[in-house]
Structure formats: C-alpha cells, structure tokens
Amino acid sequence: MRQTKISLLVVGALLLLPNALKAQEKSSSQAFWVHEDVVKPSMTAEYESVCKELVDNMKTHNIPEVNTIVTNTVDNRYLWVGPIENMAQLDKPVFATLAEKMGPEKMGALFDRMDKCYDIEQNYIIHLEPELSYMPGGITQTPEGQDYRKFHYFHYTPGNRAAVKEKVVAIKKMFEDKGSKLDYRVYRSGFGTRGEFFMVAVAAKDAADYAAKVAANNEMMGEEWLDLYSSFQATLEKYEAFEGQMRPDMAYAPAN
C-alpha cells in the first residue's frame, strides 16, 4: 500500500552502494536521484525523530540494501540523494526486507508520521560531473571533518548552455594552474529539475571555515580570478546559494 512512497524515499536517500561509490571515481558523469522533503518548521523535531527511528530499525535488523547519508539546508529542506545507473532502478523495492522484519503495518505507520511533517516533496535527477569538479585528492561527497556545506546554484538559459560550460571549464583550469586549495564538486541539472543549472558544492568545517577558505582563495587567485568569475556571472540567468549541513546522526550503513 505504501510501495510507491517507500521506493521513492529509499532511492531518494543517498544509497551509496559499493558499485555507486566506484562510479564516482570514473571521469564520466554519474546520475543521482534527489528526494527533497520541505519540512514544516513546527514539525522539524518530529521529522528528525521519525528519520532516526527508521535508522534505528535498519540498524536493529541490519538491512543490507540501504546505505544512506542525509543533508539538510537552512531553509528546512532535507535532501536524500543517491546514485543510480538507470531509471529502472527507481522501481526497486529497497525497503522490502525492512517491511518483512518490522512488519508492514509498523513500517507503514512510521511513514504516515513522516508524511505529516511536510506538504511539499520533490523528486528529480542531477549529474555529478567529475571532469568539471576540482578535488585533486579524489572526489568524495563526505570529506572527513567537513560537514558544513555551501550549495551554489548557477542557473542559465538553454541558449547560453555552451557559453556557461566554457566558463566552468576555464574556472577549473585556473584552479589547477594556480594550485587552489579550495575543493568543489560540480553537479548538472537533469530530468525533473526546473530549468538548467550547475550546482557547485563546497565542504568546510563550519561557516567560519568556509569564509576563511574563500577569502584565502580569492587572495591567492588574484585579479585574474575575479575577472574570470565576473565574465562567468555575465552568462547566467540567476544565482542562488544555500547553507547546509551533513547529518551523520541520520546516516545508516549495514554492518559487515
């Protein structure tokens, strides 16, 4: 009775299965399914309580199909993002084992409580672009000790797609040439998103650490960088930025 909701939530969680982790090391694009819950401010505590109860049940029963991390943003969105190889993967009943272990009625009641915490949920696909990202030490979504996130959304029109990508390529080259210490990952909009954009994710210890990293990078890169970034901005339709936090307390990985 809740198979559709369950499938979306599970695939929407960061299902970092072994094959998906390996895919991130490839130079080719990696598709990610995003499930986004826009949680009511008054229901934040209840939502997190339900999510942690769900994780506790997965730990108790050592559910092997799920391996999840969670991010929430300052505007009360909770993002569950997981790598997928194809669209058919979205139909897999990943919570089937948990339903069997918990009992479908008990698990259904858990999701019923979760549904009351938000009126809006969104599902879409984005693509991690390793060739456009700058992480000399290797691409990872969860650098150790850096749970703070700044998400930069650079929106553009279809007519400017080529010009925008040209600037993104030029920016990475400048970072490489100057030996920048500021890592970032680039994601491209995909199926189900409203309009086209590149999303750049930057990790740091906290907001102060992020600000210090950006200030040091700007000083090191100099006027050449400011000129390039200004010309990049001129190709855009809109720019948005959101602060976020990784939530290891809501994460789950099966025991070996």
Rank of each mutant, 00 (worst) to 15 (best):
Phe111Arg: 01
Asp249Cys: 09
Ala45His: 11
Ala88Lys: 13
Ser42Pro: 00
Glu219Met: 11
Ser231Met: 11
Leu16Ile: 02
Gly192His: 04
Ser230Ala: 12
Gly12Ser: 08
Phe111Trp: 11
Val10Asp: 01
Phe151Tyr: 14
Ser230Leu: 08
Thr97Asn: 06
Asp75Lys: 10
Asp115Pro: 06
Ala31Lys: 07
Glu48Ile: 02
Met102His: 04
Thr157Cys: 09
Lys165Gln: 14
Pro104Thr: 07
Val94Gln: 08
Leu128Ile: 06
Gly82Thr: 01
Ser133Gly: 10
Gly108Asn: 10
Lys165Ile: 10
Ala207Ser: 12
Asn218Trp: 01
Ala251Trp: 00
Phe197Ala: 05
Lys165Gly: 05
Thr44Ser: 06
Met250Arg: 02
Pro143Glu: 07
Asp209Glu: 10
Asp75Cys: 14
Met58Trp: 04
Val81Ser: 13
Thr4Leu: 10
Phe198Cys: 01
Ala204Trp: 00
Met87Leu: 12
Pro104Leu: 00
Glu65Lys: 13
Met250Cys: 14
Tyr148Asn: 01
Gly137Tyr: 01
Pro143Asn: 01
Ala234Ile: 09
Met199Gly: 00
Val94Ser: 00
Lys26Val: 04
Ala201Lys: 06
Ser27Tyr: 09
Asp112Gly: 03
Gly103Cys: 05
Glu105Ser: 03
Phe32Arg: 03
Leu110Tyr: 01
Ala23Gln: 06
Tyr239Ile: 13
Asn76Lys: 14
Glu237Val: 01
Ser7Arg: 10
Lys205Asp: 02
Ala99Gly: 02
Met220Ala: 14
Glu85His: 11
Glu237Ile: 03
Ile84Phe: 05
Ile139Phe: 07
His152Arg: 08
Glu144Thr: 09
Glu240Phe: 07
Glu36Asn: 15
Asp147Tyr: 07
Thr235Asn: 13
Asn123Met: 04
Leu79Asp: 00
Arg247Glu: 06
His155Met: 15
Ala20Phe: 05
Glu65Val: 02
Trp80Asp: 03
Val200Gly: 00
Asn160Arg: 12
Arg113Lys: 15
Val38Asp: 01
Ala253Gly: 08
Glu105Phe: 11
Ala253Trp: 07
Tyr118Asp: 03
Lys22Met: 02
Gly159Asn: 05
Pro143Lys: 00
Gly145Asp: 10
Asp183Ala: 12
Trp33Ala: 04
Leu16Trp: 03
Tyr239Glu: 15
